[in-house]
Simulated assay, not measured.
Amino acid sequence: MHQRLSIFVDADDTLWENNILFERVIDDYLDWLAHPVLTRTEIRAMLDDIERANAVTHGYGSKAFLHSLAECVARLRERPVTDDEVDRIALLAAPLIDRGHVELIPGVAETLGVLAARHDLRLLTKGDTDEQRAKIDASGLAGHFRSVHIVPEKDVGTYAGLLDEFRIAPAATWMVGNSPKSDILPARRAGMRAVFIPHTHTWVLEHDEVDASDAGVLHLAAFTDLLHHF
């Protein structure tokens, strides 16, 4: 018999594929730019810096991403971006706008079905509310969760607030996700335990070091492995 726990679960790149879609757009974007001097690596580093700064004021998601792509063009070409360039960027990023379908990571739906019978699951994702809601609806997974939370940022305050809202003990609460920056480290700082499930295409801005000696973090290779521990 499993002790009933409160388990928060990340969405993007934990339940369904997300960042790989952005990476494909960036590849096409770099092909289109074909800068005569800077390498693709140098331009990508510039774009990462722009996204890092814009996340503070514009948040996350495709709208913020489009804004960053346009700003990068303006910076590279040392002039305001033109209407034609804005249209071309929108065309390149069109696959991100259609959220009527999401690609679930293998085994996710089946695993959630079993876990939901054993524990109290809550979905916790950050980003644009309408965009994240559309992905949740398209996934068909909402019924596995006791509640769904879409927040602008996942920091220590976010986790502490949820613990207080549901009056649950941190030590009996887990956060499951692929992002050290948003899922693992702030949850641990809030006193929760965490399950780190790395994803090959985790966004570079979500990277951070996870202490391998931290007994409060369970490292798993796949989402389906949760059934062996919970």
Rank of each mutant, 00 (worst) to 15 (best):
E103P: 00
L205G: 10
K154A: 09
L227T: 14
V156L: 15
L104S: 00
G61T: 08
R188Q: 06
D183G: 09
I168Y: 01
L104T: 00
P36K: 11
I43M: 15
I97E: 14
R24H: 12
M192V: 04
F8E: 05
I97K: 14
I7S: 05
L91H: 06
A190G: 12
A215K: 12
R75K: 14
T202K: 01
A64K: 06
R52K: 15
L163P: 12
R133P: 00
L162S: 08
G191R: 03
D31P: 01
V9G: 01
R133N: 09
A194K: 00
T125L: 07
A172I: 01
R79G: 08
D31L: 14
E110K: 10
R24S: 12
D49M: 03
V86D: 03
I43W: 07
D128T: 12
A70P: 00
T224G: 10
V217R: 03
D137K: 14
D211G: 00
P95T: 04
D87A: 15
R88E: 14
G216L: 02
A94M: 06
E85H: 07
D10E: 06
I197W: 01
T82D: 09
I184G: 11
L5F: 02
I26N: 10
L66A: 03
L69D: 10
K63S: 06
Y60R: 10
S213K: 06
D31V: 13
E165L: 15
H149T: 07
D130Y: 04
N19S: 11
P180W: 03
V204L: 04
L104A: 02
T39I: 02
T224L: 01
F145C: 11
S182Q: 02
D164E: 15
E153K: 14
E85F: 04
R77E: 13
R167P: 02
R99G: 02
A138Y: 02
M175E: 10
D183W: 03
G127N: 08
A221G: 09
R40V: 13
A11M: 01
H201V: 04
T224P: 00
F223P: 10
L30A: 12
L21H: 15
L205M: 10
V73M: 11
L220N: 05
S139P: 00
W203R: 03
A169N: 15
T41F: 03
V217C: 10
G177S: 07
Y159E: 06
E71V: 07
E206W: 00
V37E: 14
L92R: 07
E206M: 07
H67E: 04
L162T: 08
A74G: 13
T14I: 09
I105R: 09
L162V: 12
E131L: 00
E17P: 00
N178V: 10
P80E: 04
P36V: 11
V25C: 15
P36S: 12
G113D: 12
K181S: 11
V86H: 11
K135Y: 05
S182W: 02
D155K: 11
E51G: 08
L220P: 04
N178F: 06
E103T: 15
C72Q: 05
R118G: 06
S179G: 08
G59S: 08
R193P: 01
H67W: 03
